[in-house]
Structures are given as structure tokens and as C-alpha cells.
């Protein structure tokens, strides 16, 4: 195990605060392990504690309880510099007064490495990230994607045991994000460096992660391979959080799912639109949103809005009253809205 976090808890607030209301529990009993070369994505809504988790791992935040180890070495009490991890920040954190070359070499110079060795490593990292022609430029003259690559190069050049990436794509536009997503994944595969990747974007999580950990209010809700999380969400929250559009959840009064379920769910792409009389449920179309080859159809079923993802060619007749057809095996049952899967 390159990276191991055991029962980590972190509370923000004044130490002297005696009342619980003055304290913010950012992380509670978080445990996770990342194997050698694994890309583990931590995903959750804003405020779920994912950036705090990363800052705790790299040592920028102290922790209340728990243990963090890197390559078997307990680093819980060590300063950031001695943890052998490199972090890429959301806002890139490039030094504006240093050119690309000096930005990349900063960490090596700080560690007083030999000048010739530094130059060679910088060249290598620049080559890898296609930055060679930008080495003498300053950050202010770089595009978002270029800044991102410099920030990555700064981490790569240190040859750390683990990369910690804090929402590295959130400051890029949509097109570039897709491109950089692939680039980061390729780079990570090539270097085989264990990586903790924090994002709030569930698409990023599902496409990039070897495994995905869903964080909510400082607790891990579920951890596993992306498709396992998608196909078998552990609870209502994970079901709602993953997928675009997310899983339809509705009371079991509308459709009786597995025995004992208070809430049932079904993925939008698992539903077909049919004649009202042929479906398991019937409702009326409220809105149709075309998205390229597919379209999202909003259907009102007994006061609940269900989303159906269909091919655009199958839209004929998708107006007025429709029937919703799906396999009973595609129906998920949950105890309640946030409750565990049955």
C-alpha cells in the first residue's frame, strides 16, 4: 500500500470552543488505502471535506485523530516536506515571478539538489508534458491548460511516492477539461504513481478513477470501482450523486420495488418510453431536453418528476401521455432517501 489513511478525523474551530456548535467536523473516521500505482478518485459535493482530506494527507492541516502512512512510513506528525508527496492545487499555485523552468525546478532547488541533476529532470518533465517551448515563458502569458501542465510538471519532477491532485480541472473550460482528463490519466498510467484525485465532478470520477470514494459531510459513503458504484450504489445518496442525469428516486408508493424498500430508484437510461397502456408506470411529458444523440425526457408521474434518457430517434410520440417500461431487475431499493440499499 503506497498510501494508507486510517480513521482520520479533523475538526475545524477554536481549540477552546466548548460547545459543539462552534466546531465544524470536516472529516470523521475516514479510512482508505491506495495501492501502488492506483488512481483513487475522491468525489463529493462542495463542503464534503475532500480538499481537507487532501490537505491533511500532505500535511498542510493537522489532524485530530487517525494515522496517515506513505509507503509504509507513518507520516502523521511529519511536516509536508518530509511526506514524499506532491500536490497540484486547484488554482495551480504557480509562482508568477518565475518562468516555467524556475517554477518546475522550485521544489528541487528548495531541496538543494545538484544543478545539473535539476536541469536534466526539468528537461525530462518538460518533454513529458510538452512544455519545452514554454520553458522561458512566465505564468501570466500561459493559457489555463498550459498552467495546468506546468503545475503537473512541478509535481512530476519531484518523483514523489504519491500525487495529490485537488480539483485540477475545475479552472479549465469544458473542452479543455475533457482533453486534460485524458492527459492526466495517460500520464498517471505512464508514471505508475499512486494518485489521490479530488473532484466534485462525478463524470471525472467515473471516467478517471481505478476506484472511487464518495465523500459526504466528512464520511466515506462508498468506495469501489466506478462501475460498481454506478451499478450498485450503497445508498440513496450515492445513487443520486453519480450519473448524469442521476438515478430517479421516488417513493415505493409509486412503484413497489424490492421488499421493504421505502424508496426505489431506476437509472434514466434503463427506462423506455412506450404507449401509456404498455408501461409499468404512466405519466405525462413535461419537458424534452435534446443533448446530442440522446434526449432527456422529463415525465411527471403522480406528482414526481422522472427523467428518461432515450435516443433522439426514439422521441416520436414522446409528448402528452406516455408509458415507462423497465426491467424489474434494474430497479434499486433503498430503505429511505439516504438509507442503505436493500
Amino acid at each position: 500500500m503506497t498510501l494508507s489513511i486510517e480513521e482520520l478525523s479533523k475538526t475545524f474551530g477554536t481549540r477552546r470552543a466548548r460547545t459543539d456548535s462552534a466546531l465544524v467536523r470536516a472529516l470523521e473516521d475516514v479510512s482508505l488505502q491506495a495501492a501502488d500505482g492506483e488512481l483513487l478518485v475522491i468525489v463529493g459535493p462542495s463542503g464534503s471535506g475532500k480538499s481537507t482530506l487532501l490537505r491533511c494527507v500532505c500535511g498542510l492541516e493537522t489532524i485530530d485523530r487517525g494515522r496517515i502512512s506513505v509507503q509504509g512510513k507513518d507520516v502523521t506528525r511529519l511536516p509536508p516536506a518530509e511526506r514524499n508527496v506532491a500536490m497540484v492545487f486547484q488554482e495551480f499555485a504557480l509562482f508568477p515571478h518565475l518562468n516555467v523552468r524556475a517554477n518546475i525546478s522550485f521544489g528541487l532547488e528548495a531541496r538543494k539538489q545538484e544543478t545539473t541533476a535539476i536541469a536534466a529532470k526539468v528537461e525530462q518533465a518538460a518533454e513529458m508534458l510538452d512544455l519545452k517551448r514554454l520553458l522561458n515563458r512566465y505564468p501570466s502569458s500561459l493559457s489555463g491548460g498550459e498552467k495546468q501542465r506546468v503545475a503537473l510538471a512541478r509535481a512530476v519532477v519531484r518523483e514523489p511516492a504519491a500525487f495529490l491532485l485537488d480539483e485540477p480541472l475545475s479552472n479549465l473550460d469544458a473542452e479543455l477539461r475533457t482533453h486534460m482528463r485524458a492527459e492526466i490519466k495517460t500520464l498517471q498510467r505512464r508514471l505508475e504513481t499512486t494518485t489521490l484525485y479530488v473532484t466534485h465532478d462525478q463524470v471525472e470520477a467515473l471516467t478517471m478513477g481505478d476506484r472511487v470514494a464518495v465523500l459526504r459531510a466528512g464520511r466515506i459513503e462508498q468506495i469501489g470501482p466506478p462501475m460498481e458504484l454506478y451499478d450498485h450504489p450503497a445508498n440513496g445518496f450515492v445513487a443520486r450523486f453519480l450519473g448524469s442525469p442521476p438515478m430517479n428516486l421516488f417513493p415505493s408508493g409509486i412503484h413497489k420495488g424490492p421488499a421493504g424498500a421505502g424508496v426505489v430508484g431506476i437509472r434514466p437510461e434503463r427506462i423506455r418510453l412506450v404507449e401509456p397502456s404498455e408501461g409499468r408506470l404512466a405519466g405525462s411529458v413535461v419537458l424534452v431536453e435534446p443533448i446530442g444523440t440522446d434526449a432527456i425526457v422529463h415525465v411527471d408521474v403522480q406528482g414526481h418528476r422522472l427523467l428518461v434518457r432515450v435516443e433522439r430517434s426514439a422521441l416520436d410520440g414522446a409528448s402528452g401521455e406516455v408509458g415507462l417500461l423497465f426491467l424489474e431487475s434494474d430497479v434499486h431499493g433503498f430503505q429511505d432517501w439516504d438509507g442503505p440499499a436493500l
Partner: peptide, 15 residues
């Protein structure tokens, strides 16, 4: 000066 620059420097091992 953004604090993130200081965070980055600390993680990079700068004294």
C-alpha cells in the same frame, strides 16, 4: 500574495 503559493512551497520542501 495568495496563501496557496506558500502551501505549494511548503509541500515542495522549501524552508
Amino acid at each position: 500574495i495568495p496563501e496557496s503559493l506558500y502551501d505549494a512551497a511548503r509541500v515542495d520542501g522549501a524552508k
